[in-house]
Structures are given as C-alpha cells and as structure tokens.
C-alpha cells in the first residue's frame, strides 16, 4: 500500500499573541519603510502602476524631505501624486530619490510613517510642516524593522 502523501505544511502567519507579553515581540512588526530608494524621474514614475499608497522622498544628502500619500482622489494614483512632486507646485526642492508602498490604508500608513519619523528624529520632514501638532505620539522600539 502506497504511503499517503503528507499534506503540505502551510505556515501560520498569524502573530502569536500569547507570547506578546515579551516586549521584544513588538520589534517583529514591519513599521519603517526600508525598500531601496530609486530616482524620482518622470520615466520611473510613468512605469509605476496607478495604485494608491504612500511614498517617502529623500534629498541628495539622504535626508527625508517628505512623506506623502496617493489618495483616492488622485486620477492615476501614485503616478499623479509623484508627478506633482516633480512639478512647479511641489512642496520640496531637492527631491531626488523616493520609495513607495502600495496600500489602500494610505491615510493611516502615512500617519504611522510620520509618527515614526518624528519619534526617530524629533521633528517632521520639512515637507510635512502642515502636520505639525496634528499627529499622535508613537514610541516604537528602535529595532522595529521595515519591509
């Protein structure tokens, strides 16, 4: 009699809340944006899908100058939002590179990124001055990683 093939083991990705009493569990959450930065040019933007999400723009010194989002009113999602950063009405002057995430939770994710930035640097990016005083306080563990 042939041995019955074993069912493939599907990894359980649900967090183990029972172990959450160990504070180190907090650090396993991907919170910071750590994807590689790419050039912020029209050619790169045009190649992006027209989806909703969040982005971070970094200047030539490596300083984050803006954290923004492509929301539901953008005609072409991320493309429209990033093209605006290149246009005459852009809020930042030295935008050179960027990274992004596609997410339908763009409002909460952008607020989260701003709060983490504020916790890490004690201030907001220069292009986010209008958020001053509107954000909550987050104290993520330093090792709370990215994605």
């Amino acid at each position: 009699m042939m041995a019955r093939p074993r069912r493939q083991q599907i990894p359980c990705t649900a967090p183990d809340f029972s172990a959450r009493r160990d504070p180190s569990m907090f650090s396993r959450m991907g919170m910071r944006m750590t994807k590689p930065l790419v050039e912020l040019t029209s050619a790169v933007i045009e190649a992006l899908p027209a989806q909703l999400g969040v982005y971070e723009i970094v200047d030539d010194t490596g300083t984050t100058v803006k954290i923004g989002y492509a929301g539901g009113n953008e005609p072409f999602g991320m493309r429209t939002a990033l093209e605006r950063e290149l246009g005459p009405d852009r809020e930042t002057e030295h935008a050179l590179r960027f990274r992004h995430e596609f997410t339908h939770g763009y409002l909460t994710r952008s607020q989260e990124l701003l709060m983490i930035y504020q916790a890490d640097h004690g201030q907001l990016p220069s292009g986010n001055a209008r958020h001053e005083g509107t954000l909550g306080r987050l104290s993520p563990l330093p090792e709370a990683g990215g994605n």
């Binding site: 504070p23 907090f26 959450m29 919170m31 339908h104 939770g105 763009y106 409002l107 909460t108 994710r109 607020q111 989260e112 709060m115 909550g136 306080r137 987050l138 104290s139 993520p140 563990l141 709370a144």
Partner: peptide
C-alpha cells in the same frame, strides 16, 4: 506608558494602537 505601534485595519481612515506598560 508606551504606544508601541499602529494597528491597521479595514477602516483605513483611523488606526488602532497597541500600547505597553513597563
């Protein structure tokens, strides 16, 4: 009193949080 992280849900306009008392 530490607010450790944002908890994202279907409700994308408003997040919940996880807090820790140490």
């Amino acid at each position: 009193f530490h607010v450790r992280r944002v908890v994202h849900t279907l409700r994308s306009t408003h997040y919940a949080t996880e807090i820790q008392f140490d």
